[in-house]
Amino acid sequence: MSHRRGSEVVADARYDAADGGALPPLVPEEVELLKARITFDITAKFTDRQRVLLAAAGAVPLALLVGFEVGEGATAVVRTGAVWAAVMALVPLGLAVNRRYRAEYAARLEAAGYTTVTDPSGRLRYVPPGGQLPGHGNPLA
């Protein structure tokens, strides 16, 4: 078995962590790249329009809970509407933060030599140099 240490591949003894043996050493740069790849995938999962629709749908139960907890009748309806509007006013901030994270992690991945590919569902993904999307290889080759 081999593992990567920096840019070199090092051969070593088999790691039998399941039997209480040692785990392979972690390479901090590789962990950070994996974190960047996962974060990019999460931030690119939905379009901005889908995020707005999800926020609007998620804000309704929250607004109903808060609005009817504080009052009843017309006052509760007005407070429910105010809470919903307040939550929806925060949506553009959330979209901006998401775009910033996506751009930051995309820059890290590109600097490390990752390339962009479009998966079958149309989402932009990053793959390591010489890599491919999961499930697109021939396991019998």
Rank of each mutant, 00 (worst) to 15 (best):
E72L: 11
A74I: 13
A57Q: 14
V78K: 12
A86I: 03
Y101H: 11
A106Y: 10
P28L: 04
A103Q: 14
A44F: 08
G113P: 02
E32T: 04
M88D: 05
L95A: 02
R102L: 09
A59H: 03
V97K: 08
A85H: 00
G130W: 04
A82R: 05
A22H: 15
D12P: 04
E29F: 03
P25H: 06
G137E: 13
A96S: 08
Y126K: 05
R125A: 12
T47E: 07
D19Y: 09
F40S: 00
P134F: 05
R99L: 01
V70M: 10
A76Y: 00
P28C: 00
L53I: 07
V127T: 07
V77S: 02
D12K: 09
R14A: 15
S7T: 14
A13R: 15
V31T: 13
A106V: 09
P61N: 07
L124F: 01
L34F: 01
A18G: 15
A111C: 05
K35T: 07
R108C: 01
Y101S: 04
H3R: 15
L62I: 15
P139N: 05
R37H: 13
A89S: 09
L140C: 08
L33P: 07
A74P: 03
V87Y: 06
Y105Q: 10
T39V: 06
V97R: 12
K35N: 12
F46R: 11
P128K: 07
G113T: 10
L95R: 06
P139W: 01
V97W: 15
T80H: 00
G71N: 09
E72F: 13
V91A: 00
R49A: 13
V91I: 11
L124M: 08
L133T: 12
L93I: 15
F68E: 11
A89H: 11
P139A: 03
F46L: 04
P25W: 11
G71Q: 03
Y126C: 02
A85D: 09
A96N: 06
P139Q: 08
L65A: 10
Q132T: 15
E8M: 09
G113Y: 11
